[in-house]
C-alpha cells in the first residue's frame, strides 16, 4: 500500500512531540490522535495522552479511529477518566505542553480563524467554531496547527476573525504548521518553510499562499517508516484519516 499525504502529516505531527510532553487532542482530530499514538509508541514513551474522549492513555493495540474523536470506544485500555476541564486546569498551570488545532484561515504569524468566513454578525459561512482555540493557544508551549487544504483560501493576509493566537513575542511558545504540502514554523513573527513533502515543489507551496513565507534552508519532510505504517494502518484500517482531505 502506498504512503499517502495523510501519513506524512501524521509523521510530521508525531515529530513535534517529545518524550514527557503532555498532549491533548480535540474533536474532529483523526491525524493528531494517530500522531500521538505514533509518538508514544516510538520516541516518546512517557508522553501523557489526553484524548477528548477523556480516557487517559488509550491502548494503541486496541484503539481504532472512529468518525467522532470522542467515541467512547476510545476508552480501550484507558487508565483514568480525565475530564476535559482537568486538562484545562493543567494548561492554566503551564502543565499541558502541546495541543493540536486546525485553522480554516491562517496568517503569517500563525494566528487562526475557526469562527466564520465573512462578518461575525452575518457570516458568509458559519464555521463550527474554535472549540478550545481561544483559551489554549496562549497557554501551551507547543502549538501544532494543521490544514489538509493548503491554499490561498487558508493562508490569508488578513483573518476574518481572530480565534487563536499564534506567535506571541517574548513567550516560550513554539508554533508549527503542518499542511498537505509542507511544514512551517513561526520564527520571530514570520512563517518559515521548514520542509516540503515528497513530490511537492516549493513553487507549489508558495504559489498556494496569499503571502510569501520565508524560504531559506529547508528539507524534505520525513516519510513514515514501514514500522510507522504498520501502527498507522492498525489504528485506522478503515482509512478514516483520509476523510478530512475531501471537499
Amino acid at each position: 500500500m502506498k504512503i499517502k499525504i495523510a501519513d506524512i502529516m501524521i509523521k510530521a505531527m508525531a515529530q513535534t512531540l517529545a518524550d514527557g510532553d503532555t498532549v491533548l487532542h480535540g474533536l474532529g482530530s483523526p491525524l493528531p490522535a494517530i500522531a500521538m499514538h505514533l509518538a508514544k509508541a516510538s520516541h516518546a514513551p512517557d508522553l501523557v495522552f489526553f484524548p477528548v474522549s477523556e480516557g487517559l492513555d488509550p491502548n494503541p493495540d486496541r484503539y481504532r479511529l472512529r468518525l467522532s474523536s470522542a467515541d467512547p470506544d476510545h476508552f480501550v485500555g484507558a487508565k483514568a477518566v480525565i475530564e476535559l476541564i482537568e486538562t484545562f486546569d493543567l494548561a492554566s498551570k503551564g502543565k499541558l505542553t502541546a495541543m493540536f488545532l486546525g485553522g480554516a484561515q491562517i496568517d503569517s504569524r500563525g494566528n487562526t480563524n475557526l469562527t466564520c468566513i465573512g462578518d461575525y454578525q452575518r457570516p458568509k459561512i458559519k464555521l463550527p467554531g474554535g472549540a478550545a482555540t481561544s483559551f489554549l493557544t496562549p497557554l501551551v508551549k507547543k502549538l501544532i496547527l494543521w490544514t489538509t487544504h493548503h491554499s490561498k483560501r487558508v493562508f490569508v493576509d488578513r483573518l476574518n476573525f481572530l480565534t487563536g493566537l499564534g506567535y506571541e513575542e517574548g513567550k516560550d511558545k513554539e508554533v508549527t504548521i503542518i499542511t498537505d504540502k509542507a511544514v512551517f514554523m513561526v520564527e520571530k513573527g514570520y512563517l518559515v518553510l521548514k520542509s516540503v513533502h515528497k513530490d511537492v515543489s516549493v513553487k507549489d507551496v508558495v504559489e498556494n499562499m496569499s503571502f510569501a513565507p520565508i524560504v531559506g534552508k529547508y528539507g524534505v519532510t520525513t516519510t513514515p517508516t514501514s514500522e510507522d505504517m504498520v501502527l498507522i494502518r492498525n489504528i485506522d484500517p478503515d482509512g478514516i484519516r483520509f476523510s478530512e482531505f475531501e471537499g
Binding site: 480535540g26 484545562f88 494548561a91 492554566s92 461575525y120 478550545a132 481561544s134 487563536g164
Partner: peptide, 28 residues
C-alpha cells in the same frame, strides 16, 4: 471557548458569581 464555558458552568456549580480564566486575551 471551551475553557470559558466549562469554567462558567463550574462557577455556577460553586455558587460563585464568576471565575477568572487564563488565555483568551488578544482574541476576537
Amino acid at each position: 471557548t471551551c475553557g470559558a464555558i466549562t469554567n462558567g458552568l463550574r462557577a455556577g456549580a460553586m455558587g460563585m458569581p464568576f471565575v477568572p480564566v487564563k488565555g483568551i486575551i488578544g482574541t476576537d
